[in-house]
Every structure is written in C-alpha cells, then in structure tokens.
Design a protein around this nucleic acid. Sequence first.
DNA 1: AAAATGTTGCTGTAT
DNA 2: GCAACATTTT
Length: 671
Amino acid sequence: MIQLNEQQRMAAEFEGKHLLVLAGAGTGKTGTIIARADYLLRKGVQPNRIAILSFTRKSAREIAERLKLSAPGGINKKEITGRTFHSWCNEIMHLYPDHFPHHGYTPLDEDDRLSAMALALGKNFRDSKKEKVKKEVVTAIYSYAVNTLCSLSEAILHVRYGNLEKEDEQVRQYVEEDRKLIAPVIKKYIDYKKERRYIDYDDMLSVVATQLERDEALRDAVTKRYRHVLVDEMQDTNPLQYKLLKSFVEGSHLFCVGDDAQSIYAFRGADFRTIHSFTEIIPRSEKLKLLRNYRSTQEILDLSNWVLEQSPLRYDKKLEAHRGKGEMPSLIHVEDDWEEADLITDGILDRVAEGGRYADTMVLGRSVWSLSKVEGACLSKKIPYVKYGGTSLMQSAHVRDVASAMRIVANSYDEIAWIRFLQLWDGIGEIKASRIISRVITLATFAEMISCLQQFEGMEVNAAIPATLAAVREYNDRPAQAMEAAVKAMQPMLEKKYREEWTSRASDFEVLREVARSSGSITEFITEYVLDPKAETTFKIGTKETDDAVVLSTIHSAKGLEAEIVHILNLNPASFPSSRTILQGEGAIEEERRCLYVALTRAKNSLNLYRNVRSLHTQYSDANRHEQLYFLNNLPPHLVKILVNGQEKKDFPAPFNPKQGEADFPDFDFG
DNA sequence: AAAATGTTGCTGTAT
DNA sequence: GCAACATTTT
C-alpha cells in the first residue's frame, strides 16, 4: 500500500461519481492517481476496466510502471497500462473496428504529415501578401482548428496574427484573405489522407470523439468497457480531448488530476481554465485540493512562488514546503554553452566521486537541441545519461528507409512511403519515382502490383524492387522477420548511402526487431511504433546495463519528474521568454512563465540556474524588449545566490549590450 | 533532362 | 540531422 496523507486518501477512496483533484507541484499528483488505481484494483475492479490517461508517453509509462510495483497480487499485471490519449483512441478503434472505417489506416507522424501537406500545398504557395506560406504554418492552423474545435478563421487569427489586435479591420481582412487561400489547401490535404488511407495524430482523437458522441450503442459499449477513466495533467486537456471525455460522463467515473499553474500545452490548444469550470460543466462532480508540497525545500518553493507572482494572471497558489528549509538556489553566470556544459558535468563527476548517484541529477532545457552541448560533455566524460524528448529512431533516415518497404506492404496506397522507397535505388529520382507510383498505386491487388513492376512498360525497373517487396510481404504477420528481410534486401543501397556510418546505424535494427517482435502484423507494428517510438536515448558505460544515469530532458518531458539536483540551461533574457514567444503575444509569454515554473519545481534539494552571456541578445530582435520581459528581472536578492566564476557576487557583470555599429562579439585576439 | 552530390541554414515544446 | 536550394555528374 502507498503512504498517503488525509487529503490524498480522501481522493483515492472517493466514492462519488466524478472527481477533480487540484494539486500544486510536488503535492503528490501522480502518487494520487496511482493510489486511486491501486484502490480500485483492491476493490476488485479488473485492470482492463481502468483507463489511465496522460499527455506524454513518458508520464504514461511512468504511471504504469509505478502502479505495477504497488498493485495487489493475484491480478494480471500485464493488463495495467498507462496510455496517451492517442494510443487509447487507437485501442478503441481496434476494439470496435466496425464503427471505424479508419481502422487499419497508416498513421502519419509529424514529418509525414508535413510531407502530405507539402503535396497539398504545391510548390510556391503564396498568400495574398505574396509571401510564401510554409507547410508548417498551414499544418499548425489546421491542427489548432481541429484541437480547439474552432473555425478556420479563428485558427488563422490565433496562429498567424496572435500578437495583433483582434478587432482591427486590417487584421480581419488579412484573416479573411488567408482563409480563402488556405481553405482549399486543407480540403486537398483531407481528401489526400482519405485517398491514401492515412490518419494523422489529430484524426485519431477527432474520429473517436465524434463517433462516440454520435453513436449511442458504441458509447454504451465503450463506457461499459472503461468504467474508470483516470486523467493525469488535466490542465493540458484541449477542447477535442474534453469532447472525448464528455462521452464518459454518463456511463463511467472520471477521476482527473491537474494544476493550472503547470499548463504548458496551450500550443496544442489546451486551456487551463477548463479545470476551473469542471464542476459546473460535469454534473455530479466534486473538487478536492492538495496543498502540501513534499518534494522541495522552502527556498526552492520561494523562488517558484515568486516567478508565478510576477504574472498578471492569478493562480491562487502558494506552495509550502513540508520539508522545511534547505539550500539557496544559485544563479550562475557563464560565458557560453560549453562552459555551462562543462560546469554541470564536472559537478556530476564530483558528486559521484563523493558517493552520490548519477540519477540524482537532472538537466533541463527548453528545447531538445539546447541539451546537445551537455550531451556531448557527458559522452566525452563517460557520464551515463538518458535523454528524453527529441528525435526517435523512427525519425532517423535509415529507419525510415527500411520502414518504407514495410509500409508499402501494409498499405499500397502509401505514396509517401513509395516516394522514399523508390528513390533509394540507383538511377531513380523524383521523376522516375512519380512515373512508377502513378501506375502502380491504382492497382487493386498486391500480386498485380508486383507483376506490373516486374514488366514495367517504357522503363527499365530494377528487378530487386519487386523482389524486395515480395520478400517483405512473406512475413506480413511477423514484423520482426519482415524487417530483417527488408534490411537484407536493401543493404547494398543503405551501405552506399550511409558509408562508414552504416555499421553503427545497422545496430539500431536489432533494437527495433525486439520491439517488432511483440506486434502481430506489419500494420500493427507501424501503428504502435508511430504512437510510441521510444524516443529516449540511453548511454551505457561499456556494455554494462545501468539504471543509474543522469537525466537530460526537455522541460515538457520532465513534467511529473523530480530530482535531487536540477540544472536549468540558458535562463537568459532572449530565452525566457524567447524572441519567438514575444511575437506571439501575451498568452504565449504566460505559458512560457509556467514552463519555467514547472522546471523550477522539479528540484528537491538543489536548484541551479544558468545565465549565459553569449545568448543575451539575438540578431533578430529588440534587446530592450527582451530585457524588459525577462522573467528574472527585479529578482529579490534573498531568493538566489549569484555566482560568477565560482565567486559569490552581489550582482551580475554588466549585461553585454553592444552599442550600435560596434562589433557584437567580445574581444578576440585575431593575432 | 534527370540524378547525384554539395552546401547552407534552421529547427519550440508533444502525440 | 535534415530540408531546401545550388551545383556537378551521368
């Protein structure tokens, strides 16, 4: 059994219909979800009747693992799963295939979705101002509209003109003109998906949410199946996910846990204010608060509270440390990213030399590549680490190459896979590939396709192309072998393409084969892998497997985690908030502030912030504005210890602020 | 004309 | 690590 305080126990053993638990950082949110699931299991609820939902794969996995440790004996622990909203929707489609024509479609990951949108856009798409519109922007607009259930105009206004005055006549005109141009493009993208049997991430939620709302029989069946729906990080629910949950209000029990101050997914359409109105919107629901922080020392919470107080928004939150006083957080002045990485990794080595663990330290960055210098320093100093967030194996070129052959076998309409697969072969480029695709993609059966490729009229087609596909097809029900066949057949080209890198890249397929082994078909493997591509990279010391490793993570992926020592990279003006955010208006800036708050509240004992001289200004934007908005402006001196070159100082060295016309780099000896 | 190779610049956070 | 663009080779 799990140790709980009075409030946590009340939540876990709640006997009413629906419950919302409002809980600040470190008050045991995840623990309460686990305790709730544990309580239900002990009461005899079958594990597959409980859906535990989260927004990131990592926290979903974390919950499942912790629950397995505490779960009572006599139950099948394999059936305990924590899942993302997306994988849950995929499961529902899988369980009730008759209600979903999209069942078995090829899921598009973010890169594929952009490729599909590029095809819909055509080259050189320009808006009414004759500016080139990027596929990324149109995709963001469409995604925002789907996730927030809003109109295309509202989405355009939010994504493209978020910082401008909504009521302005000129702005309205821009939006209207954009809408006229973009609407047909989006229609084309939607038609294209249907034609090619594609389903993107947003569709997975949208299809299931809509079908559940419409189809009473289905809703009955699904709510009977999932009696208890437990939602972690409720503040990150967007309107589409909320719509999905509403189908469960009548037949199931909702148990939601959240914290408005930790909402950092507004970019995905989340609105933390929905948790404020939870009890009004959901009938027969109650609210509970968890107040006491068990994680951090008071000094860490004082700084976190202060950051939140600077916001014009009111979060009605002041965390108090159950643990009492500790060490003061440090704000450390560094010259550049390399010094930053060096200081942090040296600190890790010192601690380990004194008998500490690698796993005591967590390094947080705003983006994945902000972690790269620290990663490099870990590699060169032989520090074991796990890196969360960022590109998974599936996004790396060699895996996509091999997967393309498997995808064609799974879904012969998959044009994006065809393009990639064909261009791997000698002498086939964009033009020849599209010629082949246009003929092959209309054929009804796999056999016809193969024979068409074998005797292709008007062009010499390498016989190895149909041979490869036929070989992969042999193992349709054994994805691990299918992958092996694909790698074998494609090896000569892959070796040529990746040259001396090939040996190290080839070892990735061994890892992937293990994953593939648990899937029953190629289609299933592709779907599961897109939904959970195991994005973490682990560095081991020698060949020894170790679970003691430094954690490198984005702030987003670190939500729900904690560590003794936390380092936060690049806490400079121009980074917090970033120049990009400043252009997006106040909402984005406030989200950025919450992001910082999430990062600060991960620390248990030691919190180290780095202020990096080199990134104090960027070439794009107005340094004054950055200075003005910097989240650590007017930081009261009693909250942090300022360190410059290891010495405690009263203040920072003067910010490096070049006058106009002056070189914007520090003195450098060119001799 | 099409493919292959080289270069530059840029990347938010997640599913 | 890759996409978009530029240049060289087939």
